[in-house]
């Protein structure tokens, strides 16, 4: 599905989402009433300081106006890898965007991610993974890190990495592999109107508690995270 198809299917009653240099902003009419804030990154655009500051601005402006959900659409590159972005403190801009989304989610504007294309590394952390519920479309193609960078850091050849990627979901790119860890809550069906699936999700919206580690345990992608986090939490509470 193209971005236009997705928006039309999500908001049959209309939307005013604009794409400006790969940065999405606007709103869409919900069938259940009210308008969702829509932000995101499109056209496989890299998320740099200039894009991130615009997105956080939209989110913060929405926090004190209403209680409709925030939809975060993602078809991005990774974070913009450049001297300028790092010089200006890219880590602060990406963290600020994630903080704004998480804060909004905790304060009455539930955040839903919709991964419909690529996304990677810091861009994924600052957008799709900073939501309460992350939905994948079958076309989604996330990758935590690209194989050339991975090869350089791990000192393994790209061929060896490609071979291992076939049998090792915990490091391999792709929606299914990421979903197994608990990062992607559900995958929508492209043959059914997205508005219907959004309605169903909104009617059954979980509370804001982060349960992704329990999901990863259930799906077998992260065998230890849930138990370790829970044990540390209990030990820490007892130690005081």
């Amino acid at each position: 599905m193209t971005l236009d198809d997705i928006l039309a299917s999500l908001f049959p009653d209309g939307h005013d989402v604009k794409n400006s240099g790969g940065v999405l902003s606007g709103s869409g009419a919900l069938r259940s009433g009210g308008r969702a804030l829509v932000i995101g990154v499109a056209d496989r655009t890299a998320l740099g300081v200039d894009e991130a500051i615009r997105l956080s601005n939209y989110v913060l402006a929405s926090v004190e106006s209403g209680n409709a959900p925030i939809l975060v659409l993602a078809d991005s590159d990774s974070q913009r890898m450049s001297k300028r972005d790092e010089l200006l403190g890219l880590n602060e801009f990406l963290a600020h965007l994630a903080k704004s989304l998480i804060y909004a989610d905790m304060h009455g504007r539930p955040a839903i991610g919709l991964l419909y294309g690529h996304s990677a590394a810091g861009a994924l952390l600052a957008t799709a993974l900073a939501t309460r519920v992350l939905v994948g479309l079958p076309s989604a193609d996330p990758a935590v890190m690209d194989l050339p960078s991975m090869a350089r850091v791990t000192k393994l050849s790209i061929e060896v990495l490609q071979e291992k990627a076939k049998s090792t979901p915990v490091f391999a790119p792709g929606l299914r592999n990421l979903a197994q860890t608990g990062a992607v809550h559900l995958t929508w069906d492209e043959a059914t109107p997205l508005a219907e699936q959004l309605d169903t999700l909104l009617a059954n919206m979980p509370d804001a508690r982060d349960r992704r580690d329990a999901l990863g345990l259930e799906r077998g992608g992260r065998p230890k995270a849930y138990a370790i986090a829970e044990r540390v939490r209990e030990l820490a509470l007892q130690a005081l």
Partner: peptide, 10 residues
């Protein structure tokens, strides 16, 4: 990578 990325998000 997938487990580590999600750990950071959490």
């Amino acid at each position: 990578a997938n487990a580590g990325e999600l750990a950071i998000a959490e």
